[in-house]
Design a protein around this nucleic acid. Sequence first.
DNA 1: ATGCCCTAGTTAATCGATTTACTAAAGGAT
DNA 2: ATCCTTTAGTAAATCGATTAACTAGGGCAT
Lengths: 358, 358
Amino acid sequence: MSRQPSDKKKKKATVQKDGDPISLKALAEHLGLSPTTLSLVLNESPKASSIRADTKKRIFKAAREMNYRPNYLARSLRVQKTNTIGVLVPELSDGYSAMVLNGVEAELSKAEYFYLTASHLHREDLLEKLPRVLAERQVEGIIAVDTPIRFEPSLPVVNVSGHDEIDGVTNVVLNHQHAAELGIGHLYNLGHRKIAALKGQEFSSDTIVRWETILEASRKRGIEIDAKLVVQLQGDSPSPEVGYSATKSLLAAGEKFTALFAFNDISAIGAIRALEEMGLRVPIDVSVLGFDDIYAAAFHNPALTTIRQPLFEMGSIAAKTLLNRLSGEANGDIASILSVEPTIIVRQSTARVSNNGN
Amino acid sequence: MSRQPSDKKKKKATVQKDGDPISLKALAEHLGLSPTTLSLVLNESPKASSIRADTKKRIFKAAREMNYRPNYLARSLRVQKTNTIGVLVPELSDGYSAMVLNGVEAELSKAEYFYLTASHLHREDLLEKLPRVLAERQVEGIIAVDTPIRFEPSLPVVNVSGHDEIDGVTNVVLNHQHAAELGIGHLYNLGHRKIAALKGQEFSSDTIVRWETILEASRKRGIEIDAKLVVQLQGDSPSPEVGYSATKSLLAAGEKFTALFAFNDISAIGAIRALEEMGLRVPIDVSVLGFDDIYAAAFHNPALTTIRQPLFEMGSIAAKTLLNRLSGEANGDIASILSVEPTIIVRQSTARVSNNGN
DNA sequence: ATGCCCTAGTTAATCGATTTACTAAAGGAT
DNA sequence: ATCCTTTAGTAAATCGATTAACTAGGGCAT
C-alpha cells in the first residue's frame, strides 16, 4: 500500500454548502426566540398554531441559512425512539445475506429507518454479545438472517430462515417442502433414481429442514437416498471451493449416481468443476441441481437448473413485518411463521438420465 | 406468502436472561448510592479510587444482577462520541460493495465501532441527502464505496475507488496503471493485437481511469484499441446480463477481435455466454480477461483469467485510515491517496492467439 | 486545639433536543 | 371597570448518562 501526497489541485464537484452544525439553542438565541418556539415550529407541531406566520417564516429561513440539523441523539433520547434496527448476518459477502439485506434496506428506507449491521461469523461469543450491544444502542428491533437465536428476545425479532419457534421471534421461511418436491420431482421425472446430495453446513439454519424435506420427497417417490451418496459441506467460505471439495470426496468414495442435488448454487458450481475434472459431463453424465438462483446461475456453463428462493422478497417481508410490529399495528397476533414459495428454474445443468451412463 | 399460527411448542435454546432495561438512576436508588458513584465505578474511572472496595463490589454485583446496560444515546450525547460511522454504497448485492464492506466491518469491529449502511442506487437525490442524514445521526465519519462525493465533507471521509481530489477526502484506490499493464501485457504477450473492451458504466468511479490506463498500456505496445471494439456497459443490474448484452451488440457490429478485456468478472461471465452463443470458443477463438477475481471466477467454465483487486483489504485500509483520522493521530498529514496493488491470476479464459481464427 | 489532608462519597451542570405547564399582553364582552 | 379569551410566546422538566466542583467527617501533625 503506497501513498501519494495531495498535489493541491481540486476538482470541486457540484457540492452543497454545509457549515459546522448549530444547536437549536444557538439558533434560538440568534433569532431572539426560545428553543421551545423553534422546536414547535420546525416540527410543525399542532401547538405551533399560535405562532405568527411571519415568525414561522423567520424561523424556517434561519434554520435553512444556518444549516440547522437536529441532533438525532438528543431527539431520540427524549422521544425514546431511534428509528434504527439491528441486523445480524453470518457474513456480508456470502451473497445470500447481501440479497436479503437488499430487500431489508429497500423497505426500511421507505420508513426512514436505518440499520446497524453486525456479522457473527458463526462464533458463539458474538451470537450472544451482538444482540446485547445492539440493544444497548437502542435499536428498536432485530432482523436476523440465517442466524441462530442465542438470546432472550427482549426486542421484536424477525429471523429470515429461522426454524426454531421462540417467543417474540417471527420466522420468515421458504416453503421447503414445496422446494424439495420441485427439485426431487424434476430429477425423478427426468428418470433419475440414484441421486446424490450436498448437505448444508452444520451451522446453516436451512440444513436440517432442507434435508428432511428432500428425504421425504424422495421416499414418496419410492427412492431412498443412499447415505453413501450424501456429503456435508465443510467450512464457511462463500466460495464454490466448499462444494468442490465435498464433491471430490463423494466421487472418491466411488459410488455411482446420475444426479446431484446441491445445497446452493455456489456449491453446485464447485460440484460441476469437480465432476468435470473426473471426466463426467454435466448434464450428460450427471445432472446438477442448484438452489437459490443467484445472479451467476443463469450464466454459468452449463446454465444452472435451480430452485429459486425469493431472497430480496424475504428481506422485504422481514422488514415489513418488523416495522409493523414496531408500529403497534400488529397488536397481539404476532405470526410465528411467514412462508414464501420457491419456483424451479429449469436450465441446462439437468437432463434426462442417459442409458449409456450408469 | 402464507401464514401459519404458532402451535405453542417451544424449543428453548441456550438463552441468557435479559430483563427490561434499568437506568443508572434506578440502580443507584436501589443501592442507596448516587448515580455519580456508580458511573465512576462502572467506568473504572481513576476518580473512583476513593470508593471503598466493598462498595465497588456491591455496585458490580447489582449491575450484573439487575442487568444494567448503559443507554448508548445518553452516553454518546454527553461525551460527544458515537463510535459509529456511515457507509455509502451503490447497492449491497453487487458483490463488489459486499466484499469491501466485509473488510470495513472486520476493522471497525476491532475498534468497537458500528456502522450505518445506506445505498444510493446512483440516484442524485440520495447522493446529496444520505450524507446529511448520516451526519444528523452523528456518525463520526463516512466511508464511501464506489460513490461520487456530492457533498461538502464536514466529516472525515474515505472513498474506496474515489478519484476526485476533494479536501478532507482520502481515496483508497487500486493502482490502475499497473492493473492495465498486467492485463494488456498479458494479452499482448499471448499475441493479441485486436483487443476489444467492455467499458464500465458511466456511474462507476473506476470507469474513466481504467479506460485511460488501458489505452495507455496499449499505445505503449504500439496497438491502438479500435473505437469500434469498445462498448460501454449499460444499466446497473449486478447480473452478468449487462456484459452479455454489451458483448452481443459488439458482435453485431461485425468487427473482428481476438481478445476481450471486460470491466469486471461479472460482465466477463456474461460476455463468455454471448461469445459462445455466436459459436466462438473461449479461449480458442477469443480470450476473455476479467477484473476483480470474485469467488466464482476460479470456478467458472472456463476459469477466468482476471486482474485481482484486493477488495477486502481496500475496505480494511479504508476503515483503518478513517479510524486513524478520528483518533487524531493522523494530525495534519492526511493522505489524499492510498493505493493498493493488483495481481493477475492466469486461468483458462485466455490463451495464445490462434492462427486459424482471424 | 487548630489547621490540613484524606476518605468516601454527593450535588449540580451538561450534552441537545421535546413537551408540559405557565404567563404577559391585547382584545372583546358585559 | 372587570373578567374572559385569545395570541404569542417562554420557563422548566425531562430523556440517561458523564463529570467538574464540592462536602462531611475522621485522622494526624504541630
